[in-house]
Nucleic acid binder design. Structure first.
Length: 233
DNA sequence: GCGACAG
DNA sequence: ATCTTGTCGC
């Protein structure tokens, strides 16, 4: 994956929404919903935070068995696109790809704080990224972008997230006092496995450890950046 | 036409 | 996502 191909798939600059939609369709053709991994030894979590005109992407890699942090890395870039529902992959993709290619450990599975195939044309961030980079990915979000499901009430309870007649993910009550989270395959992870992986990564919080820690890390970088900006003013 | 809409 | 005080409940 070189710089040019990276820009080809993730850079929203100078492109119309119609062109970006076409890129999504091209990536979706590559999505594989079968497990494309052997034993899971490492899991990564990716999340972004924002400050002024910049986007901060944080990636944390953990040992799958112990959930201990192995590596952390981040990237800061200027945002290239405003938030437009269903086009999030182009707003956060550049920064995510940048960090992903910098880490020294190639995670067996990467969990994103966004949608997978539970997207109008199946091009949620996790699905798009996984298809383009050809790696196993899972999407975990807090709100439903599309589809419908029965709301789980008890901790651990889950139901299928449906769109028309097909299943596009799961809705899981991960924590007693939190709203349910939405889980979906991205690429190279089956419907059943994405649920199992996320359940394994839950440690009493609303979000699975990989994305929970990535979210915290992204926030720390933002505060650090804010502090530096303030003292130079 | 109206409402919904990941982060 | 981000801003931001108090407040309700375990």
């Amino acid at each position: 994956m070189n710089k040019d191909r990276l820009r080809e798939w993730f850079d929203p600059q100078k492109r119309s929404l119609k062109e970006l939609r076409e890129l999504q369709h091209r990536a979706v053709e590559r999505i594989d919903l079968e497990d494309g991994f052997d034993r899971i030894e490492t899991v990564a979590g990716m999340d972004c935070s924002y400050i002024d005109k910049n986007i901060i992407c944080a990636m944390v890699i953990l040992d799958y068995a112990t959930m201990e942090v192995i590596e952390k890395r981040h990237a800061i870039q200027e945002v290239g696109l405003p938030y437009i529902p269903t086009y999030l992959n182009f707003r956060e993709g550049c920064a995510m790809a940048s960090v992903f290619l910098q880490v020294s450990t190639r995670p067996d599975i990467t969990i994103f704080d966004s949608c997978g195939i539970n997207h109008p044309i199946r091009a949620g961030m996790a699905a798009y990224f996984g298809a383009v980079m050809d790696v196993p990915t899972v999407g975990v979000s807090k709100k439903i972008l599309c589809g419908h499901a029965i709301t789980p009430v008890n901790t651990g309870e889950y139901h299928e997230l449906m769109q028309y007649e097909e299943q596009i993910g799961w809705v899981l009550k991960s924590n007693k006092k939190s709203n349910p989270i939405i889980i979906a395959p991205g690429n190279k992870v089956s419907m059943g496995s994405c649920l199992e992986v996320v359940q394994h990564c839950l440690k009493g919080y609303k979000l699975p450890e990989p994305t929970r820690l990535a979210h915290n890390y992204a926030g720390e970088i933002r505060e650090e950046l804010r502090r530096k900006t303030e003292e130079s003013a």
